[in-house]
Simulated assay, not measured.
Amino acid sequence: MKYKQCLAACAILLLSFSTSSALAAADASGPSKVQLQVGKTWKLPAKPLDMVYSLDGKKVFILTKQNQVLVYKADGALLGKIDVEKGVSAIDIAPRGEKLFLINQNNNSFTDLSVDFAVNIDISGSPYVGQENAPVTIAIFTDFECAFCGKAVPLLEQVLENNPETVKIVFKNMPLNFHKFAVPAAHAALAAEKQGKFLEFHDELFAISPKLSPEDINGIAIKLGLDIAKFTKDMNSPAIKQQLAKDIKDAEDAGVTGTPTIFVNGIKVKKRSLSAIQNLIDGEIAQKAK
């Protein structure tokens, strides 16, 4: 009996498959039902040869016949131009566009280029140390429960000590969702700024990070001699919450995906070392001197 049931089941499956295949073939031969909608179009200054999108959808790289790669934002705003050798006929990129790969048919070569884009970071109203009008601005996005952020503090202190007249360090917040007290700590540090104690509060938080609690935050406020009533009111004010929301939005716009992330005049620091940051600073100063 079971054998017959098995045969019947197999027959049903075969019939189902045949029917599905026939329907698919019928659909394929029927009229097209594809709907098209133009998302964006922009004119190019030269004949395009190849193009590629970054996987995050934020950048478009277009190789032109004029031996250039034009880099656009997804909305068509031009980010920059990269000159390439004659004969480059195909391009590709790393996932976020941080590397550009070139194929040259003239000399049968492959080239791997690192690509850096300077981003505009709004630092208005953000706490800072250093000369207000310094030619080089270092912006750092941090999370007060991030252990690596705490390790970046002495590094930037050394950078400022080595460049007292040319560098300003601006502090931006990017509390990560999985850190329970990162948002209250950011609110607290910004509230302390209202009483001129941001840097001291910042340093105290990182001295005990990543294990933070409401009691720790209040204890730091008392230790620093803050007006507790004003501190508590400011910490919970809409203005402070809006300032933190702005920092988070600025981080998103700058492509920040983790903490700490450091920028030197809008150029992302890839290697967090004293020499690497100093090289970027020296390059920016040399560029401004031209």
Results as ranks from 00 to 15, higher is better:
207 A>R: 07
172 K>E: 12
196 G>N: 00
202 H>W: 04
232 T>G: 05
162 N>Y: 02
217 I>M: 02
59 K>G: 01
125 G>S: 05
68 Q>R: 12
2 K>G: 15
242 Q>N: 13
245 A>P: 02
120 N>L: 06
25 A>C: 02
167 V>A: 09
213 S>E: 11
115 V>S: 07
232 T>W: 06
216 D>L: 00
40 K>C: 12
87 G>R: 07
271 K>D: 12
8 A>I: 15
18 S>G: 13
254 A>D: 05
162 N>T: 03
42 W>T: 14
126 S>P: 02
240 I>Y: 03
134 A>H: 04
19 T>F: 15
122 D>T: 07
220 I>M: 09
277 I>C: 10
13 L>M: 15
104 N>F: 01
137 T>M: 07
102 L>M: 04
104 N>V: 07
80 G>W: 13
112 D>W: 15
151 K>D: 06
69 V>M: 09
56 D>Y: 01
176 L>W: 09
229 A>Q: 14
276 A>C: 11
153 V>H: 02
180 K>M: 05
192 A>T: 00
249 K>S: 09
246 K>F: 08
194 K>M: 06
52 V>W: 04
52 V>T: 09
207 A>V: 03
46 A>L: 08
124 S>F: 06
213 S>T: 14
35 Q>M: 09
156 L>G: 01
289 A>C: 02
177 N>T: 14
184 P>F: 07
150 G>H: 01
18 S>L: 15
121 I>W: 04
134 A>M: 05
69 V>Q: 07
290 K>P: 06
268 K>N: 02
259 T>D: 03
37 Q>T: 15
123 I>Y: 03
120 N>F: 14
69 V>F: 00
148 F>R: 11
92 D>Y: 10
67 N>Y: 10
110 F>M: 07
229 A>V: 15
37 Q>C: 12
81 K>M: 13
241 K>L: 05
219 G>H: 00
232 T>D: 09
89 S>P: 00
159 V>Y: 11
218 N>M: 01
111 T>F: 11
280 L>F: 15
100 L>V: 04
106 N>E: 14
89 S>R: 11
125 G>I: 02
139 A>K: 01
270 K>T: 10
262 I>K: 00
55 L>V: 02
156 L>A: 06
166 T>V: 09
90 A>I: 07
214 P>I: 11
177 N>C: 10
164 P>N: 04
178 F>P: 05
19 T>V: 15
267 I>Q: 06
220 I>H: 05
2 K>Y: 09
206 F>A: 03
183 V>G: 06
156 L>T: 00
237 S>A: 13
230 K>F: 05
93 I>M: 06
58 K>V: 10
260 P>F: 07
94 A>N: 08
150 G>S: 05
187 H>V: 12
